[in-house]
């Protein structure tokens, strides 16, 4: 084993290399790696956060949907009620109108009847007189028998 000045050369070279590595090689590499792992950690955290946010948003959406459904149901119910009410009102109106029309028609019918009766009464009087004339063979004095005829007509 031959120990000589090579040992000094190697010692110095070693020290110089370590120094260079310490100054120029190690820091950029380790910093880049640390920064990257921080970035990744942040990314993961952001992903978690986003997931939570998504969950919240979903819940909120479901809530909103439920509310909307409830409102819609309420509106529909209200509308149905209103429609029923309208139908009922319309029915009532129609019924009233019908009744009114029926009453008017009945009144008219009655009027017609009375008028016909009046006409008939008049004609009965004339026919009676004509009949009586035929029977008696003489003219009936209308003036003399007016009271009797009136009585007859009213009995019809």
């Amino acid at each position: 084993m031959d120990i000589n000045a090579t040992i000094l050369g190697q010692s110095i070279a070693f020290a110089v290399f370590v120094f260079f590595c310490l100054k120029f090689v190690w820091p950029p590499l380790i910093n880049a790696m640390r920064e990257r792992s921080e970035k990744i950690a942040q990314g993961l955290q952001a992903a978690d956060q986003a997931e939570q946010d998504l969950e919240l948003a979903k819940e909120k959406a479901a809530e909103t949907l439920r509310e909307a459904k409830q409102q819609a149901a309420a509106l529909i119910e209200q509308a149905n009620k209103r429609a029923n009410q309208l139908v009922e009102e319309a029915k009532d109106q129609a019924r009233a109108e019908g009744e009114r029309l029926k009453a008017a028609a009945q009144a008219e019918v009655e009027q017609e009847l009375n008028r016909a009766k009046e006409a008939l009464r008049g004609q009965v009087a004339v026919l009676s007189i004509a009949g009586a004339e035929k029977i008696l063979g003489t003219a009936v004095d209308q003036g003399a028998h007016n009271a009797m005829l009136e009585q007859l007509a009213s009995e019809l």
Partner: peptide, 12 residues
């Protein structure tokens, strides 16, 4: 394989 080299490092 040279003891000068290895010992040089270990003496540092």
């Amino acid at each position: 394989t040279d003891p000068n080299i290895t010992l040089g490092m270990s003496f540092t």
